[in-house]
Design a binder for these strands. Structure first.
Lengths: 216, 216, 216, 216
DNA sequence: AATGAATGAGGTTTCATTCAT
DNA sequence: CATGAATGAAACCTCATTCAT
């Protein structure tokens, strides 16, 4: 019953192994959702072992997504906790480094949004939401110290809108298999994701600040 | 290849039947992806018949999504073709009426984004993109006549950014099962979608206009 | 909707194929319960096809058992419907020929009794009971015409007691793997099943008649 | 091989713990076969520990069944060893008290009969048979002193037939889920088990005595 | 054109058993 | 002795797709 001392880190290690394996497989074949057997295999574990750590395949994918998010939030909070003033460019850099630049982040986020309603237990989903809320709240609060925002809620909302733009733009421009875009107008449809994202985010932030503090 | 002329409208009718059935089923049970058998059944057709009109289940879902989009674009183009000046409020109204207000639009769009990489034939995906590009181009061009935008590309981009925001915000705030949000911060995470969308879009548009025409 | 004319017999044929396959496999390897894949394979059909005809593996096994029982009851009812007087010897012969002599009957009955509580849908179980009740009732009624029994219920009960004896004795003496019985007393435990069954049934029937009609 | 003397009773205790746990779980959920993990948990032991005392799960269930049988035989032998004459009513009382009245006895016996061919090692099965034979022999011998039976074998056979009836009738009338019996004939199929058992056993015994000693 | 029976790969999950600690 | 994490075979069942009629 009470012997999780050696377990605790071993457990963490197993989970890391499995999430690494899932992300790795995902990157190797972005066109298909990896099966539990493959994930276990890639991790050097047995299929049944996966179910000692995750209730279902979807729970595992959700956890992989959450780890991505966690890394981003940690970096954001760390940066925002420093005394120096953050600039919009700092935000863009963080975004590029931890979201748009992490190859599996957005595909996985898209998948999670689209398939979440399948095998995720309500408890897992709720717990996930809870943890995200905590992170968002912390990040939103810090954001107020660097940007002209009215309050914590303003910070949280700006973060959410930004993430919505990041995710939505990716789904429109980047998620489909490459090799298309053989046409002038189609070329407009699929500009470089990073360039477009940059412009869009700057517009959103500028618009937000001007609306909230029009005279600032 | 040798299409019987009388067939053409019959064909349209079948397709309409099937898409209606798919959307109807989706609305009845938004938590599960309808099976081909169910769709056929709901349409009063046999399972095999579906494959006379669609190459795969995903193609069918994509078509259902496209129909939603087509309706929106038609409305947008119709409105923008009128001589009167369009306002931002007009855009919001169109959005509310044809996207956020059509119950199946965003869930289906999310699903399509998440599953596009599975069973959609590249040809279908490319053809879809092509048609969307045409619509986007037309709409973007018209948009320039009503709003301070530099050129067609500016219009197209604004539309895309807006759609990204609409889709992304929905995935963040609305796609998960309701009943959560039992916490202060969680409550911030899940504000009323329409309210939040309104504020976000206005910020985005204002920011865009100010950046493109800062002195206007 | 209304096209079961050619279907009806095809359907029967499939079911027969599958039940034959299940019984055949069972006899080849009485030590293990055949898997659905094996049954389908033996029947020359695909795994999924099984589920077009049976809701679960257990339903299939139950049906195989019921077919055994059905054959016995048909023979019993046929024999009892003839005008000639039935003797106890006739009953023993029927038992030997259609129950104890059918190799898969009793093992399957044992399995069904022991595992039925797993995957059989309540509806299937109830329907099975219903049909058995009808057969039992018919047989019990006919039995009254040949043996000194008070009424239909008496006939039904005698049949049930007899079957209980047949099944129970088989489980005690016959169901375990052979090769044991290397001891005097153990030898008593495992006499020839048919001999012992004969004696036991005669005792049961004689005792029943004497109790019901002690002066007859 | 070198059994620590103090271990012996500890060993007995563990075994008792495990058998108690298995029976307890069985009674809590008669519809499912308890898993090894559950049994170990209920016994307050670890999963692996079970295999220090039983070679397989089926061995454990067999042992639980044997303990039931052992208790019955002890009572029967004790009663039959007393000087007073035993009556048929005494037998019925013992049956009701130690077999039909022990909730787990018959379900477990049925399961054991149905699964014996799976994971029980031949040695365990043989040893079980051996021990049962000894008990049966002793009980059969004593029985001759109280009832008109020709010899030990007659006693053993009567016991076996009786048990067959007890077990078989239970499987027919009692083992299936309750809640059925919504029909006249079905009602005949499922009379009160104890009442029916009483009548059946009396018929069997009477028939046996009359056949063996027709003039007694 | 329409059907729907048949297919069978594919997926998830369970659980008895082992073995290093 | 005791443990329980790891195993991995085995089993069931679904469902998109095909094709003979």
């Amino acid at each position: 019953m009470s012997r999780p001392p050696a377990s605790a880190e071993a457990r963490e290690h197993r989970i890391t192994q499995l999430l690494d394996a899932a992300v790795s497989l995902w990157l190797q074949h972005p066109e298909r959702i990896p099966g539990v057997a493959e994930v276990a295999d890639e991790a050097g574990l047995a299929k049944g072992t996966v179910y000692l750590y995750f209730r279902s395949k979807e729970d595992l994918l959700l956890a992989a997504h959450e780890r991505h998010a966690e890394i981003f939030f940690s970096a954001l909070i760390a940066r925002a906790s420093e005394s120096e003033r953050m600039s919009l460019d700092d935000m863009m850099r963080l975004t590029r480094e931890y979201i748009a630049g992490v190859p599996a982040f957005l595909p996985l986020a898209t998948l999670v949004a689209g398939l979440m309603h399948k095998g995720v237990t309500p408890e897992s989903a709720q717990a996930f939401d809870q943890r995200m809320a905590v992170r968002l709240g912390a990040a939103g609060e810090l954001l107020c110290k660097h940007f002209p925002l009215p309050d914590v809620v303003g910070g949280v909302r700006l973060l959410m809108r930004s993430y919505a733009l990041i995710l939505g733009l990716w789904q429109i421009t980047g998620c489909c298999a490459p090799g298309h875009a053989n046409d002038e107008v189609a070329a407009m449809l699929r500009p470089d994701y990073l360039t477009e994202l940059d412009a869009a985010l700057r517009a959103l932030w500028q618009g937000t600040f001007n609306r909230e503090f029009p005279h600032a």
